[in-house]
Computed example of a mutant assay.
Amino acid sequence: MNFSKNKSSKLFLLLGSFAIVSLILWNTNSFFKEFKEEERRKMEIWATAQSELMQSSENRDLGNLHLIIFQNNTSTPMIMVNKDGSTKLNNFPEEMLQDSTWIQQKVQLFKSENTPISIDYKGEHLATLYYGNSAMLNKLKYYPVALLLIIFLFGAVIFFFFKVNKASEQNKLWAGMAKETAHQIGTPLTSLLGWNELLKGSGTATEITSEIDKDIDRLQTIADRFSKIGSLPKLDEVDLVEETKAAYEYLKLRSSKLIHFSFKSQIEQMPVFLNPALFQWTIENLVKNGVDAMRGKGNISIEIQEEGNHVNVLVTDTGHGIAKSDFQTIFNPGVTSKKRGWGLGLSLAKRIIEEYHKGKIKVLSSSKEGTIMQISLKKL
């Protein structure tokens, strides 16, 4: 049976596990209460024996029973306070018997742990017995806490397992959808290529067929991108400046005239290991997010800078900005500020840069004046 794909089995496993641990916890708590009651009965017997001993007016033999009761109590710490204020301590270190402050602290502690036992004889109050929990009882007292911690950790592990499992299933689903999309695009693309060749042969203006060729190439690039989702892409040694500029030029030609583009590079060439199709997809996602943030009007700039062993690509927009608390979450799948958005663009960009290219992508800075996104890649 595959528990990862069977929701009822998952629920049964989770509930069954919690039921077992809860049963152990309940039994332990019951045992603790019984053990505590047993200790109290033992203390009451000791108090009764002590009462008989204190009322013995003659130094006569009271029998072996009293002696056995007194000798058998070697685990429960106790303090007997006589009516004259004197104290008698059992089961304590010898060095603490003369410390009156420590004894008073123990009396208050025992009072909070167990109800004191009054030692009386024929209506006369002789002493009060204060007793604490034995070492065994103290261990049992903290055992339920340990079990609760185990339950919490167990629940956390189960939650993490299901979360990772669900994320893995979603990744497989998206990868399958992406590959299927690439496959479906391939059929009309083949037809478009054929129709465009017919247009060229029929004397259609070169400007028209040339633009159709560009869009066909673009569709082929998109299909290639989708086909790479879910598999490890091949990285080639290419010029980062050239690939970035190619993405910039394409977006500039096909964007609104209300968007002002600018490109700047401190270097003429920068060889890096890249998958050009996926890298340009990342640039397009960042630019399109910037355009959406500006609501179709503003400035977009792309700049390439060297920084030690790395080269940075900065994409700047003049949009409304991103809250600092959202700098990390915007890269999570499904997070979007657009009404019709899927929240996949930045998530894909992060995967492309960090998982495939072993680089870094982050929000470098953001304010009401705009946002700067940074891609950092290692130089060759």
Rank of each mutant, 00 (worst) to 15 (best):
M1D: 10
F3P: 05
K7L: 15
K7W: 07
F12W: 06
L14T: 14
G16K: 01
G16M: 03
V21H: 09
L23N: 00
I24D: 04
N29S: 14
F31V: 08
E34Q: 14
E38H: 10
E38M: 11
T48G: 12
S56I: 07
L62M: 14
L67F: 06
I68T: 12
Q71S: 07
K83N: 15
S86L: 04
T87H: 08
N91I: 15
P93N: 02
P93Y: 00
E95M: 06
M96G: 04
D99Q: 07
S100V: 12
S100W: 06
Q105W: 05
K106R: 14
V107L: 12
L109G: 08
E113R: 04
I117M: 02
I119H: 01
Y121F: 15
E124V: 07
L126V: 13
N133P: 03
L140W: 10
Y143C: 06
Y143I: 14
V145L: 03
I150Q: 01
F152S: 10
L153S: 09
L153T: 08
F160W: 09
F161W: 13
K166R: 12
Q170L: 10
K172S: 10
S191T: 15
L193C: 04
L193H: 12
W195N: 14
G203L: 04
G203A: 06
T204S: 00
T204K: 00
S210K: 00
D215I: 09
Q220H: 06
I222V: 14
L235Q: 02
L235N: 02
D239E: 03
L240W: 03
K245W: 09
A246T: 14
A246N: 13
Y248C: 04
Y248N: 07
L251V: 08
K257P: 06
K264P: 00
E268N: 12
V272A: 05
L274T: 13
Q280M: 15
T282P: 08
I283H: 02
N285I: 13
K288H: 10
G290N: 02
M294N: 07
N299K: 11
I300R: 04
E306V: 05
E307M: 12
N309Q: 08
T316P: 08
D317C: 05
G319T: 01
K324P: 06
I330Y: 04
T336Q: 01
G345K: 01
L346M: 10
S347C: 15
A349F: 08
E355G: 03
I361L: 10
K362D: 11
K368C: 00
I372W: 00
L377H: 02
